[in-house]
Design a protein around this nucleic acid. Structure first.
Lengths: 150, 150
DNA sequence: TATTGTTATACTCTATAACTATA
DNA sequence: TATAGTTATAGAGTATAACAATA
């Protein structure tokens, strides 16, 4: 995205513009800070999800993340190749793959979360700690107010 | 994006998640509110830009928006087909197209901006007016703090 | 030779359809 | 017959390369 000095205030004050610009910036910083962990933001989301839940099939995990099963295949292929997750056929239903974090996966996740926390502080560096909390609180309320969660 | 009740707080409290979810919601509402004007959010951005500046070539306008010239062609094709903008060969340099709003374009823009304002209030309905202002102010500071504007 | 607008091509991301193995 | 995982295919969106007109 270009510098916004030339766009005019009518555009640069629009909510969509501000959100998009901020998101792009945060994603860029995240990517940079996550690089040493060897994973991307999307992979971090998968690891967090797998860590927070009882083992479940890859399709169910994908549904929670809003990732369809065909995309989930490649995502897990990558994580498995890095040794961070393991797929195991469910003994009760051999069509299903139960996906679980490996020990390496858990260690990588812990590192990545710390890196991601640093990235978030970095992205919000323009705010002081109490403003950061305010911003997070307001954003959380806006985010959870969706009328028709898809 | 799915409901977030099943994702766990470690994921749903992440800044990237909150921003993305909010942006998707705002874009969806924008689209709905802009529909009667017959334009999309991206087209609104182009109209706002053209309205705020002296007439300039389509390539320069695209650069400001971060849209490359090849994508700009189709974008302007659409706006021109709707009668909202006009392309005219620059007499001083006949390689250039000077792009300008038509009268219809200005009227459509005025309507669309009002609709977009309503959409933003709708998207921030979870906040009261003073909180909305606070949120906007904080978001603006975060958005304009980018270190390396691409 | 370089630049503007344009068109054609390729690449990415994701969704849809088709295939297999299990149920 | 239906479902989980996989693979193959197709669609949107965007970037890169090539082309025509003009400088």
């Amino acid at each position: 995205m270009p510098t916004d000095g030339d766009l005019g205030p009518r555009l640069t004050r629009r909510l969509t513009y501000l959100l998009k610009r901020t998101l792009l910036d945060v994603e860029e910083i995240q990517q940079e800070y996550l690089a040493p962990s060897g994973i991307g933001a999307r992979e971090l989301a998968v690891l967090l999800l797998l860590d927070s839940r009882a083992p479940e099939s890859q399709q169910r995990a994908g549904e929670r993340l809003g990732v369809d099963r065909t995309s989930m295949v490649g995502l897990l292929d990558g994580l498995e190749a890095k040794g961070l997750v393991e797929r195991q056929a469910d003994p009760n239903d051999r069509r299903r793959n139960v996906v679980a974090l490996t020990d390496t996966g858990r260690r990588t996740l812990a590192d990545a979360v710390k890196a991601s926390d640093r990235a978030e502080r970095r992205a919000l560096a323009a705010l002081d700690p109490s403003e950061r909390e305010q911003f997070r609180a307001l954003l959380t309320r806006v985010a959870s107010s969706r009328r028709d969660p898809t």
